[in-house]
Design a protein around this nucleic acid. Structure first.
Length: 154
DNA sequence: GCCAACGTTGGC
DNA sequence: GCCAACGTTGGC
């Protein structure tokens, strides 16, 4: 069992949007970074824990607990010319971009970025490192336990 | 809107 | 393979 933090812009897909989806599950479309793709392809397993993070918004922070709900499969938006995620160089027989389904387990309060930064025990959290822009990052089990405790989940 | 940090592209 | 130019991310 591994743990991950996954960023989403709330204007694109908020935790509420995900909760409103069927089975509270959404396909994590739009990842266009090889390292992030490889985490989904090689690192994730169904059932892995996910911290649902809101980025590029007024109050960035962790807003929910989720789980990986599928294995990696081709992101259909790469083949859609009308999608902002369209990739004309990706070919159907050899898809460049993958996604996993993510199921929200529970919406939490917003554990904000300043709060995360204020906690010395979290200084090694990848997302807090300077210059980090990866939309999917691994989370250590100790960090997962601390964060879920701070969020007030079981 | 600004800008630091980083990834990607493409000429050589 | 190098590296400058460019585009993107994302907090502020």
């Amino acid at each position: 069992m591994n743990y991950w933090l996954m960023k989403s812009e709330p204007e694109e897909c908020s935790v509420d949007d995900a909760l409103a989806a069927k089975n509270a599950t959404v396909p994590w479309v739009g990842v266009r970074n090889y390292q992030a793709r490889n985490f989904m392809r090689d690192g994730m397993q169904v059932g892995d824990g996910v911290l649902f993070y809101h980025s590029s918004c007024a109050e960035p922070g962790i807003v929910g607990i989720a789980r990986v709900a599928s294995g990696a499969y081709p992101d259909p938006t790469q083949f859609d010319p009308t999608s902002p995620y369209h990739d004309s160089k990706s070919r159907k027989e050899d898809p460049r971009w993958l996604l996993v389904d993510v199921q929200v387990v529970e919406k939490t309060r917003n554990l904000t970025l300043p709060e995360l930064r204020a906690n010395p025990a979290l200084e090694d959290l990848v997302i807090l490192r300077k210059g980090n822009r990866l939309s999917i990052t691994p989370v250590e089990a100790t960090h997962w336990r601390l964060i879920t405790r701070l969020l007030g989940t079981r």
